[in-house]
Nucleic acid binder design. Structure first.
Lengths: 214, 214
DNA sequence: TTCCGTATGTGACAAAAGTTACCGTAATGT
DNA sequence: ACATTACGGTAACTTTTGTCACATACGGAA
């Protein structure tokens, strides 16, 4: 697979539904920003000055508890936008979530001053914003389903399956500890359940990685 | 307190930030719909033909599990809109939630055909939609905080406090069973915890109602 | 008043999840 | 090579939550 490095191509590929005018405008007026794997892209309490569109990479969104533990909610991939950044930028609100770059990530930074105009002039933008919100909202509902209605065993299975699907690989490079903190539980609980899943031949366990067999 | 029955007054009171033109248009083109206490206003899988603005009453929003148990998320009151109805109406998507009228409720039904126009012509509408989404999103995040990070005791306390604040009364007409299903647990668990709270003089228990003392 | 349905209280138990403690081993740095 | 750290396994135990069984109490209807 060839790696795209030039912004117009990326826009075409991941934001192809934008009107040509809109793409043109974004290219002219907006700059990009890159993050290294592990960088925090936003933290709770931080103010937005830009709406962010994901061009390259992968971003992990967390909710943070009072005690600072991080609960994983969903990923953003190229073609997505940070829903909160759009709205909070428009309304000058603080961030409510934690966003962390999973790998090297590039985003397009749209200044808040442009938002009103985009919304009024470009139908494709307004649909995009609504769709962004709807999609994130739906993901939150699924998260709620899991923590409200399911046990840890099902949540773990769902989590692993989601990783496999999202990352498009059966070999997950992840530790028990990471899974535990994503699901807001303890490492021992995860180890126990993983061991059970291995005995049922759903997965195979290695040091620092897990193979999905199903 | 005098009860308002005429729509223009209600619009002025609860949607005063709308431009006069916008209010005028809504009055001309939209009809209202009323629901009795306990009526389902929408169910999962149902399609939207209208975006709904709450004019009078109170609506309870639930997420439904596969087994049909209902998990309470938040209330809508006059001045609110159903976020999902706005977006799903625009995009012709199915409902993902269950909405139930708590008491006699009147809503303004905005046909989906109008949405694009409203969005483009009325800045106050577009801000309203974003704000609606942001507010609901934030409520979902708080819900997630509770079920992900807190135990049942804290969740119960928060639930009761929220009822007291939202309904503006210290006397809650609610049964243990109702609380249990709102929080997706069993009646016995709630009875136990309520008893503990009563011993700590946080509340006083009666048949079919609870008094908040704190 | 009596009857009856609903609401609540409670003990005993089971299951799930969280905690503590400790061990072995793989990976890493010096 | 050696020490150090990170990762994972596991037993024993506690706490929390869920379930079952059954008792009791209240409040409206007849």
């Amino acid at each position: 697979m060839k790696k795209m490095t030039n912004i117009p191509d990326i826009l075409d590929k991941h934001f192809g539904h934008f009107e040509p005018d809109l793409k043109e405008l974004l290219l002219q007026k907006c700059h990009t920003q890159s993050y290294q794997a592990g960088d925090f892209m936003m933290k709770p309490g931080q103010y937005f000055k830009f709406a962010m569109l994901i061009l390259k990479g992968r971003v992990k969104l967390y909710r943070e508890s009072d005690e600072g533990t991080e609960f994983f909610m969903y990923y953003l991939i190229p073609g997505n936008a940070c829903a909160l950044s759009i709205i909070c930028a428009t309304k000058q609100q603080q961030s409510e979530v934690l966003a962390k770059a999973v790998n090297h990530t590039t985003v397009l930074m749209i200044p808040i001053a442009m938002m009103d105009d985009l919304m009024r002039k470009y139908k494709s933008w307004y649909y995009f914003v609504l769709e962004t919100y709807r999609a994130r909202f739906e993901e939150l509902l699924v998260v709620i389903d899991h923590i409200a209605f399911k046990g840890m065993d099902e949540r773990l299975e769902f989590y692993l399956k989601k990783q496999v699907d999202d990352l498009e690989t059966r070999k997950l490079n992840i530790t028990h500890q990471e899974i535990a903190s994503d699901l807001s539980t303890s490492r021992e609980v995860i180890s126990r359940l993983l061991k059970k899943m291995e005995q049922q031949h759903y997965i195979k366990l290695y040091r620092s990685h897990i193979e999905w067999l199903k």
